[in-house]
Amino acid sequence: MPESHTVSAGPADGRAGGPGGPGPVPPPLSGAWAPVPVGDPAADFEPRPPGGPLYRPDTVHDGWSTDAVTVRLASVRGNAHRFRGRPREDDVAVAVHAPTRTVVFAVADGVSAAEQPQVGAALACRGAVDDLLAQLESGQAAIDWKHVVDSAAYQLVARVAGTGGPALAASKEAERRYATTLVAGAVQVREHGVLSLALVQAGDSGAWLLHRGSGHYEPLLATKFSAGDAVISSAVTPLPRVPSPVVATTALLPPGAVLLVGTDGFGDALGDGTGAVGRLFHDHLSTPPPARGLAHLLDFSRETFDDDRTLLAIWPRHLLPGTTP
C-alpha cells in the first residue's frame, strides 16, 4: 500500500479552532499569492482566457508517494500565453504500474508553430504513458522504448486519420496540427531497493538529476544549451517525427538526488543551474514540497521567461524526512 508522506511548506494558514466551533479569523495572506520574483520580475497583469474549443486549465499540479518514490508535478501557463489569451501548450502525465512498482511518466511541449499544439502535447503524454503501462502489464522482459515513442507519435497521426490505415498525408497533417516534444520515462525498483531510471526524448525538453546536497544539476538529456553555439536556435524536431535510432538514456536514481523532467520553459530559465533559478529550486526541492507549492514555485516571475513551464520531480523515498530507512 502506498505510504503517505507528510510535508510542511508554504505560508502558514493561521487556522486554529477545532470541531467545536469557529476559531479565530485567519490573518490576511498579504503578498503570499504573488509569484516568487527572480531577478527582474515580469510585468504584472490579469491573464486573458485561453481560446480554443478545449478546456485547458491555466495550472495543473499533482503529487503522491508510493513506498519507493515521492512524485510531484506542475504545469503552468506561461505569461506570453496568459497575456495573449492562448492555452497552455505543455502537458504531463504520470502513473504507477503497481505490480512492478514502476512509475511511468511523460512530459510534452506543444510546438507553437503548430495549429493545436496543446492537443498534441496531451495526446503524446497519454499515448506514451498508456503504452508504458501496457508493456509493463504484458510482462515483457524489458521496455521497448522505440515502441513508446512510436505510439506517442502515432497518437497524433491517428487523431488525423481516425483508426484507418497509415498514410503519409495524415502524418504530415499531424505534424502541422499537433507537433510536440516529448520526454517519456520510467523509474523502476531494482534489487535491494535500488532505483533505476530510463528516458527517451524527441525534441528539446530536458531532464536532470538535482543532487540535493551540492545543488548540482546533472543534465541527462541534450537541450538547446548543449551545443555551445553563438546564438540559440528556436528550431525543434518534434513528434510525429521520431528520432532514429531511439536510444534510451539510463541511470541510477541515487537516494541523494531528485529526478527532474521539464520543458524548456523551465530548462531555459535553469540554464546550467548555477544561477538564481537553480538556487531557488535547489532550496525548495531538497525535500518534496506540497504539489500546490511546486506549482507556485514553478510560476516564478522573471523577465523574458514567459513560456509555459512544466516540471515533474521524483524523489527516492529513502533518506527523506519521515521515512523509515
Partner: peptide, 27 residues
C-alpha cells in the same frame, strides 16, 4: 517568437505501431 519546426534527421511516423491503441481519455 515561438519555435519553428525542423525535421533534423528524424522521420515522420507512418506505420501504426503493433498493439497501438487510441489514448481515448485525452480530451
Amino acid at each position: 517568437s515561438g519555435r519553428s519546426l525542423a525535421s533534423g534527421d528524424a522521420q515522420l511516423i507512418v506505420d501504426r505501431p503493433e498493439g497501438f491503441t487510441m489514448a481515448i481519455d485525452v480530451i
